[in-house]
Design a binder for these strands. Structure first.
Lengths: 208, 208
DNA sequence: TGTATACGTCTACACTGTAGACCCATGGGA
DNA sequence: TCCCATGGGTCTACAGTGTAGACGTATACA
């Protein structure tokens, strides 16, 4: 019962992976199932609900196979963060959805539960745990979305603005940092460094 | 010259503020200007370019009126963060765009320049400045987007998942934290606390 | 006078999501 | 045996969408 719904989501997910999120239309999904567009409405409440279902799929993929209960809290947190980044790299379209469709599904709650226990194990006082969970997950999702959307790519200024031009001396900090700005960006390494910083932030909060 | 382009963006921005981002269609913008949809294409390359223009507008609003050069770096950073949050609260639709359209415009570069100088003034070693800028801005934008999208709202699990139900004992951390989870969330205070944590993170990086 | 340039119009096409009415096979009471 | 509820699917139709292409016109400068 309801197994047909999963088939619909499967089809939508396949289309998104192959041709991007814009290609996911009711008609396209229906075609892939060899069915009329209107037939989908038996299994999904509409296009928005379909997209919600897609983010549910992605989130479900974040849960670790084993509980991994025996690992130290820092590693458990990193594993979740890596899983999140990998999911958005595997399904770049999902980045557009993670923030804009804050559907709190059962799988999402399970992920939050893991973060909660990690923070508690780190010794964070209980009243600070929810805030730090939001802080960490906001950053991790933001990072994944930024990467998938190309926000970390080379800073390409659109030509009109460049012509409207800025005097060379107008951006002194940029010029001073130019050597480091020109370096190719190792996103994975940056992600690691960021997570290390966040771990220290959590430890500091635990000490208070 | 090109002043007409600004009028087009003005119209689009007004529509977005009044009726949401979905209401921004070429036809709607054209109607508001008393003009045919196709007339817009003289001033804007297409719908995507129009949306890019909108994020440019929002970003331009982030720049402080005065340079505020004399303030300590922490306050300058906070001012930018507040401005970002306020912009997305004033124009909730922009949250959907900030991450998904990473258009690096001149105004965006100016904002980054301010963050760079703040971090340099804080004593962060030059090679770490670009990374920390990305870390901070990723979080700040992520926070603003989350708030505007309702991700921080009360955790409403959709009924299907709830019925698919989870044993009461399956989420121990949630139960342990229930007292704090039930509290109404003071988003502004949380933002403050997060920024304070980030400031400490930056100071720690400066000490290394 | 001629000719760019900026601006706008009209028509048309290929799509989109979805409301409403109708159909048909299956299976379990009466 | 009849009935009919249920899950699945179809067809038609509508109001919107973004935009390609060809055409018109008014100002401004040579």
């Amino acid at each position: 019962m309801g197994g047909r719904r999963e088939e619909v989501l499967d089809a939508a997910l396949a289309i998104a992976d192959e041709a991007g999120l814009d290609a996911v239309s009711m008609r396209a999904v229906a075609d892939r199932l060899g069915v009329t567009p209107m037939a989908l409405y038996r299994h999904v409440d509409g296009k928005d609900a379909l997209l919600d279902g897609l983010v549910g799929r992605v989130l479900a993929g974040l849960l670790p196979a084993d509980g991994g209960k025996e690992l130290p809290w820092g590693e458990r947190l990193r594993a979740l963060a890596y899983a999140c980044r990998e999911a958005t790299l595997r399904h770049p379209w999902s980045a557009q959805l993670l923030f804009s469709r804050p559907a709190v599904t059962l799988d999402a709650v399970r992920v939050v539960e893991l973060v909660f226990t990690a923070l508690l194990d780190a010794g964070v006082p209980e009243h600070e745990v929810p805030r730090l969970e939001r802080l960490v997950s906001t950053f991790v999702i933001g990072f994944a979305v930024s990467e998938a959307a190309g926000r970390f790519g080379p800073g390409r200024i659109d030509t009109r603005s460049r012509r409207a031009g800025f005097g060379e001396g107008e951006l002194p900090a940029h010029q001073r940092l130019a050597p480091w700005l020109d370096l190719p960006l190792d996103v994975a390494a940056e992600f690691d460094a960021d997570l290390a910083d966040l771990e220290r932030l959590i430890e500091a909060a635990a000490r208070r």
